[in-house]
Design a binder for these strands. Sequence first.
DNA 1: GTCACAGAAATTTTT
DNA 2: TTTCTGTGAC
Length: 693
Amino acid sequence: MVDGILADDVLADLNDPQREAATYGTGPLLIVAGAGTGKTTTLAHRVAHLIATGVDPGRILLLTFTRRASAEMLRRVDGILRERDRAGVSRKVWGGTFHAVATRILRRHGKKIGLAPDFTILDRTDSEDLMQVVRTDLGLGETKGKAGRSRREQDETRFPLKGTCLNIYSRAVNTQQSLKQVLQKDFPWCEEHEDKLKQLFSAYVDRKEEASILDYDDLLLFWRALLQDEDGRQQLAEKFDCVLVDEYQDTNTVQADILRGLSPTGRGVTVVGDDAQSIYSFRAADVRNILDFPDQFPGTKVIKLEQNYRSSQPILDATNAIISGATKRHHKQLWSDHKQGDPPQMILCNDDDEQTEFLVDRILTHRESGLKLQQQAVLFRASHHSISLEVELGRRNIPFHKYGGLKFVETAHVKDMLAYLRLAENPRDIVSGMRVLMLLPGIGQVKARGLLDILTENRGDFSCWRDVSPPKAAMDDWPLFVALMRGLGDPKAKKSVVGDQMHRVRRFYAPLLKGKYDNSRERERDLEQLELVAARFKDRMEFIAEMSLDPPSSTQDLATDPSLDEEHLILSTIHSAKGLEWNVVYVLHATDGNIPSQQAVGDTDQIDEERRLFYVALTRAKESLYVTMPQRYYSQSWNRSDRHSYAQPSRFLTKEAREHFDERMAFPSIGNEEEDSADATRQVRESIKGMWS
DNA sequence: GTCACAGAAATTTTT
DNA sequence: TTTCTGTGAC
């Protein structure tokens, strides 16, 4: 390249450490980037700089946490390069999540380690389904067989549910620990089942192999295996000159191994992250990856970004105070040029309803003063925390998009539809096969298994099902079903437009849907949306993989054409808000039990992670920050006999932290004082009682 | 073998 | 609110 270094005017937007990071040479580089310090900008400039100095874009690998993040990054790279007439080259960059890139690589090179290229991918719920199949096969869930069923035995803990089993399995695999260690540390109540869990997991692994399916963990494991295979390594290690990893604090041991496999000396490796924002340890992410990076790769250059461009100083003061309570951390002091601004507000509400009322009120006030809804975001710890807000927004016709929580593709009817395509793509995929067959009346687990065995014997040719005589109840549907599958399985159909295939499935499936759900009309509309999405894909396999690896993140993303999209408010779990920013941020339910979550107060590591989570939430705000907390929770659940309970503010809002907040009631009380004081004494009693329950 | 029902138990965050 | 297991009718 004759260009040499990128023009000064492009790099002039960067501050000194950012510029140093963007232009640093090929040695291992660690960029420690605090919240809002221009991490994305820096990384984008680094990629642009690499390309401008002659690195082949096709030999750059950019690993991000979500596909959205990598798309955004590459868009900015293009923006920077446009001035050099090189716009568009970034399309050649290998960008995406670890899992998405693993899929591409394994399809192409997996043969080396004995992997068929047409594997299908299990998402979280599919993996649970398979776990359940194996679990019942081995008779592990049963409780009735126990002789006598004495009280003693009833007290014995039941075998863990499928979700828990998968958590245990995944944790062992991703942390590379023995089952015993994992059980001891994270699942002590399951320790007595160690032997049976071993049986279960080994059968689970076998099943996946027979069916030619990979779960999320497998994608990483096999990529790593490929890098450890001598042949594979040669081909792959030489594939990339530069590897950049974003959000490195949230990678796990296997991902770190992959990085080492790609570049054993660290040549060409850049990682970016912030240990204060590590919030995925539940998924086996290990902060030590980023903390120990300089030891792993001798000669690492460390560059710290500490100037915050996002938030006003009053907000930074508050967030600095919150994170300073952490027991272990890499010291950083964020500062901003943006000195002016309102202090963050801590809002006390009577209950959930009042919180909702306050939020809607405030959101509209900001809207009236000219701030678009997209520039405001409501963040919460758990997906269900926003339910009452969603209802109210709906009632008032305020459009919103919700991120996190149950995704569109995880709903039963969407999974059903996709299962037809997946079975057609990979007839050995027993998860999809069982799902599809059991939709037919009269076919249950046993029949479904038998039918799949026949299919395997006939090498996946769906014609073999024509000769089967189905149970009476399925008599009408069966020929149609077989015709559908034969059509989809035909090699010619494989290449036909994915939208058309989806349409055929929908015609068959819609009547079944009617009988299965009472809100079938609504669900049918979802399926129409799905068909539209499918129509955007040329390749069926790609479509299916995409739906497992990178599903549309909000239901509304699908329902509306992005180009015609109307103004909308953002609701998001804190986890899904990572890396994003808004002018106004509201953090809901900042009470103990919610933040930190009741389930995560076991040890200091967990509590620290919850603190970082709270920190991530607060640091999303640019100008205004509201932290709201209901004081009273009504519980009509089976669990509690009392009708309501009182909540304390989050323990992270310590006295010192609160000095940086304006504290007030959402709606100053106008009720009669007697009731208030009665409430106050009740609150004391309740909270004392709470200490023993 | 399948299905519908009942009673009990669990309940975060996500590639 | 859903998920899981056991039971009994078909």
